[in-house]
Structure formats: structure tokens, C-alpha cells
Design a protein around this nucleic acid. Structure first.
Lengths: 364, 364
DNA sequence: AAACGCATAGCAAGCGCTTTCTATGAGGTT
DNA sequence: AACCTCATAGAAAGCGCTTGCTATGCGTTT
């Protein structure tokens, strides 16, 4: 049924070794022989068995890309960019196969997929998006990553903080430390971006600023909230920050609900800052429904600068994260096409994009 | 370095066969033995080598999902839903690994990825999005799919028309026909949806309707344009259709440019129909920039009903494609969790979503 | 008490490929 | 003319796992 190396060898009248060599091109083979083999390969439509090859050569052409949800443009863009770099050269047999895995943000699912990838002896793994902290599996994930790195799998974190320095003691400690160092990190400047965003609102004159954030134990949530808080605190508004912060889940619906809740807490709110653009959209919908104009009555700001933000009306003020570049860089790093930053950690800048959805508050 | 089955066997004091059986749970093993083995597995942190397993058992736990671009929500949603079904049960060792591949819509890239997947002896392949017709590689893709199906790989087409019935003659013809039948198709009712959309505009009273379409040789483009055309033709407006159709590439930018071009061709246009929502967003931007109000001056409609459509202002009239459901179904089909529709082809309904961006034209 | 069946476990033969080591012959050397 | 070198090809040993077949020992059956 399936054509094997041996079949090709037989038809070409050579040994299997020779066919393998022609295919891999890493050993001298006479021109005429090579031709004969190639003809046989084409005649038989032979396609090498990747598993057999992987087993024999102890290499793999799979790279895992873990995302919360491909359907979310934030991750879609990251994954798309990474995938392009990973697949680069697959026309010439170079390049690898990117396995995009939806984890839904759960460390449990992450762990699962990591094990699956470990099974396939993946050449590399990229983890995108913030990490969840403090669950039972969180440690397990870090351990697994260390183990993968130790086994030669390239690990790249994109959009999450570096692995914590080894918290263990005991005989394995030194080893694990080294492994952690083998993990490259592309951290996003969530804190700085959020800070600049809130400062922008403060500068415009806002004082009653509501904040809609994401799930509590996520690094991304924490960092963005921290940035927001510190900006407010510097403006002497620490209390506002506490009173006007509502947790959601990064979805449009939660942005909608949370905004209604904020309005309940302070009907005279002049600005709503959302932890991401999707939430911001929900916020806009809620405000509009309440008959409030943006930005005349209430300013709204998001985070990420996803493509649709520019098409919101009014165009959304947000913080731009160079997702495409970051994803591509992660892809290159995992493929070893780019040398890791010194210390293994690079921070990706977040840039304020002041647009039409924010304006000075009306003091009616 | 790496722990193998033999290591586990040694530590548990049993044969490799027994360990394998414990792990696969498809052969009776005494409780005490099983426990001993499991302890060894845990102690050693053993993870089976997927390649070795795949080779020995001639099975694979990879499923390919080919998309034009994960960053595009249309594909992101499809892929996400499919992936969820494919990975379902991976906690218990069930489920497979979804490999999402960006083809950029090029048959050449499709062919490449299909070969890569064939190498890995993928258990299944899902192709999403319209097909490109008439290129040299188009046939090659169909052939490759037939070959994969013949080799036992489940093939599911999602959002593209069924494989053409075998056009070859010759000794292999019968065989290939069978293979084509083994391919399951989830076709989208692009034609019907487009038709209903344009009828909606016609019913509202529009007569000067512009159309912004996608790249020429794509099945999706063709079908949607066909639907639009036939609706216009039935309204006696065939000429309008020809004059007011501009080709783009499904991007926001091309929607913007094309709309400007339409306005040039007919400044008194009362409606713009876009071949997808992204184009529609570009159209809105162009119109707004020209100082035209939507829908008072010009109505705008899209296609797909991507999540952001509802947040456009005004909310976008469009045609809803149940992408999530379709993707999930494709996933189930490729996993054999759902029996294929009779004839191997099912059509996914497209539903008109009349919203605020379309209204009767003002006859000023 | 002899014969049998069943539940478990092990043996060993691959799965299809890579790669080390060895063989062979042509061409060059002294 | 005897010897060495280099280029090229083959033989064969795995890579780590699954699985058909074969043992082994116990509880049963008559």
C-alpha cells in the first residue's frame, strides 16, 4: 500500500542507504545514481515517513505554539506571525510544522499540550499570552518547561514574564537553574503601557476613571492593573482606583456588564479604561446604550490595538503592542534563526495610540 | 538522557511489552503489576516517544488544519472550533494534536503543507476557506487529497466546494473516484447568502448597488458574486452588476480603495455590498471620509458576520455564517466522531442579518 | 487425579528510516 | 608494477515502541 524507502531502493537498484542519502543530501552520491533515485522517487510518489525519520535521526520537525484561543485576534496575530517564521523554507524541505494549541488560558491544558508535544519530541515550543499564577498546575508548567529545555527543546515565552528563578532547593536545583536560563522570554511592557494610558487620561483632566480588568490571577491582568494603579496613585487617586475597578474576563460581554456596574458605582464617571480592546468595545456598547456619547460624555480606552480598534467609532484610543513583530520574533527565536537577547529576556515596547475615543472631560 | 520504555520496564521488573500494555490499556494486566509499572513511570517521569509509537502502531495523533491566515477571525474561529473538537479528550490521552497551517490561500503552500502532513502520516486533514481555481497546483492539490484519502487520512473540506468528480481517464480513474467520495465536504451557501443579501437591498429600494469582491479565481469570490449577480439580474439590473463590481482582496484596505473607485464610477450610488465584513469596514471608512452618512446616504453590507460587525457603527448588515459550528463539525468529522452526511456533502446555511447599516435609499 | 481453560506475562519480530563502519574499484603515486 | 587515496555504495545495527504468538501457572471440570 504505502511506498517505503526500500521500494524506492529496489526500483532504483540501489541500497536503502543510498536513497536516504540522496534524500537528505548530506553525503556524496554520484550524479547518475542520484538521478536514478530521484526518478524512482517520483515514479513511486514516495513521501518519507516522518515518524520513522524522527525516530532514527532523533529529530523532529514540529514546533508547538500555545495560545489561549486562536479565534481571538490577539493570539491569532501572534500565532500567524510565528507560524510564518516557523514554516519558512518548508518549500525547500527546511522549516518546521507549527502546532497551534488552544489552551483557553488554563495551566492544566497547557500542561497537557506540553506533554503531548514532549511525546512528539517537539523541536521547540512557544507559549503566548499571560500566565496564570498561583494554581497547582502553575508550578508544574514551569517544571515541564524546564524539563523540555533540558531535553533540548527550545522554549520561548511571548507575552508572559520570564520563568521565576528556581524556587527549589535540593540536589537538582543547579540543573534547573540552567534550564530556566535556556528559556527565552519576550515580555510585553504591559505595566508601562497601562501607566502611560492612564496618564494620558489624567493629563486630559479626567479624575473619575473606571477600570475594567481581566481575570484576577493572570500576569497580564496584574501588570496592566498595576500600571493603571500606579499612575492614579501618582495623581493622588489611589482610592479611585480601588473603588472603580471591576474584574471581567477579557470578553466583550464582560466589558459591557462591567461598564454598567461602573456606572452604578459612579454615575458621574468621565472615563473608562479597559484592560483590552475587546472589553473596550463592550464598554462602548454599554455607554452608547445608556445614551452617553463617546468621548463627549465619557472617554474610553483599550489595550492591544487590535485591527478593529481603528474602525470603532470613534476610533479607539489604545496601547499598541507590536503583536506581529513579537510573534515573528518568537518564531525566529524558537527556530534558532535569531540569537536570544542578552540574559534571555527582551521587553517589547507598548506604545500609546491616542485617538478619538478620549478627550478632555466636559465639566457640565 | 531520555527515559525509554525499557528503563521503565527494568525499574518495574517487567518486560517492555507489559509496560506498553499498561500504558495503552488494551490488554489485561494484573492490578499489582499495573501499579508497579505506573509507579516506575511516575518515578522516572517517563513520556512515551510519539514517533516510535506512531511507527510501530502505524497510527498518528496529528490532524492538519489548513487555513488562509489564522490572524483573520474568519479562519481563527473556524480553526479554534475545529481544534477544540480535535483536542477533545487529550486530558485522558484521547484526542489528537491539531496542526494549524497558514497557507495564505496559495495552492502551492497548500500542497506543501499537505506533503508535510503526509510525511507525518496525519490522521486527518481539514481544509478551510475557498479554493483557488485554475492554477497549475489546483489539480495537484486535488490529487494529493485523493491520495491522502486513499492512504486512510480523513479529509474534510470546510467552506470550499466538493472535490470535482474525477476528470481523469485511464486505469486509475475508478480508484480515484472512490477516493474523492471518501472526502467529506461542508460547503458554505455563499451563493444563496449573497443572493438574499442583495435581494434585501433591492427590496429596500436600492437600484444603484456597488459590489466589492475578492480575488478573481477563488470559489468563495465567485459564488458570492454569482449570488449578487443573479439577484440583480432577476431585478433587471444585470448591467449595473457588471459596471459596479470592483475586485479587491478581502482586506480592509482594498475595501477602502474599491469604494472610492465605485464612487468614481457612480457618485450617486446608494449602496455598497462587500464580499466580506472586513471589506465592508474599509468601505465604511471611505464613505465616512467622503462625508457620506451610513445608512442615510449610502447603505453598506458585508458577509460572514464576524464578531466585530455588531460593533461597527452603525451595526453592519451582513450574512451570518455559523463559523463556530462549522469548524466544530469539521473537527468532529475528521475525528470520526460524527458520521458524514449522505453523499459526503453538507451545505451550511447562510443567514441574512439585517442591521442598521442598510436602510431605504433617500431619494433626494 | 488427570486434563483443560483462562488470565497474565514475556519473546521477538518488526515499523521505516538513519548512520557508522566496511567494502570496492578507479585513479594517482613512487 | 605494487601501493595508497579518495569517492562512492552497501551491510547492518539500531531508534523506541507495538503486538502476534508463545509460555506459565493457577483454578476448574469430569
Amino acid at each position: 500500500m504505502t511506498v517505503t524507502l526500500a521500494d524506492v531502493a529496489a526500483r532504483a537498484g540501489v541500497s536503502a542507504a543510498t536513497v536516504s542519502r540522496v534524500l537528505n543530501g548530506n553525503y556524496p552520491v554520484a550524479g547518475t545514481t542520484r538521478e536514478r533515485v530521484m526518478r524512482a522517487v517520483n515514479d513511486l510518489e514516495y513521501v518519507v515517513n516522518g515518524h520513522a525519520r524522527a525516530l532514527a535521526a532523533a529529530t523532529s520537525d514540529l514546533v508547538g505554539v500555545l495560545v489561549n484561543d486562536v479565534a481571538d485576534p490577539f493570539f491569532g496575530i501572534l500565532a500567524s506571525a510565528a507560524q510564518t517564521e516557523i514554516g519558512r523554507g518548508s518549500e525547500h524541505g527546511g522549516g518546521k510544522l507549527a502546532v497551534v494549541c488552544n489552551t483557553g488560558g488554563s495551566p492544566e491544558a497547557e500542561l497537557n499540550y506540553l506533554t503531548l508535544l514532549q511525546r512528539q519530541r517537539a523541536a521547540g515550543v512557544i507559549l503566548t499570552g499571560g500566565a496564570v499564577e498561583g494554581t497547582e498546575h502553575t508550578h508544574a508548567v514551569a517544571d515541564k518547561l524546564a524539563r523540555l529545555a533540558a531535553d533540548g527543546t527550545k522554549v520561548v515565552l511571548c507575552g508572559r514574564p520570564p520563568l521565576p528563578p528556581d524556587e527549589f532547593s535540593g540536589e537538582e536545583s543547579a540543573l534547573e537553574n540552567d534550564d530556566a536560563a535556556a528559556v527565552t522570554t519576550l515580555a510585553f511592557d504591559n505595566r508601562g503601557g497601562a501607566r502611560r494610558l492612564t496618564e494620558h487620561l489624567l493629563t486630559l483632566g479626567h479624575r473619575r476613571i473606571g477600570y475594567v480588568t481581566g481575570p484576577a490571577n493572570r500576569t497580564t491582568t496584574r501588570d496592566r492593573l498595576d500600571g493603571h494603579r500606579s499612575a492614579l496613585a501618582d495623581g493622588g487617586l489611589a482610592v479611585t482606583a480601588d473603588r472603580l475597578t471591576v474584574h471581567g474576563d477579557y470578553s466583550r460581554a464582560s466589558g459591557y456588564d462591567a461598564t454598567l456596574e461602573l456606572l452604578r458605582r459612579d454615575p458621574d464617571l468621565t472615563a473608562v479604561v479597559a484592560a483590552n480592546d475587546t472589553i473596550a468595545l463592550g464598554a462602548c456598547a454599554a455607554l452608547r446604550e445608556r445614551g452617553m456619547r463617546i468621548p463627549q460624555d465619557v472617554s474610553v480606552a483599550g489595550f492591544d490595538d487590535l485591527p478593529f480598534s481603528i474602525d470603532a467609532t470613534p476610533a479607539l484610543t489604545t496601547v499598541r503592542l507590536p503583536l506581529h513583530e513579537a510573534g515573528a520574533r518568537a518564531g525566529r527565536l524558537v527556530m534558532g534563526l535569531e540569537s536570544p537577547p542578552p540574559g534571555g529576556v527582551a521587553t517589547v515596547r507598548a506604545e500609546l495610540m491616542a485617538r478619538a475615543s478620549t478627550a478632555p472631560p466636559a465639566f457640565a
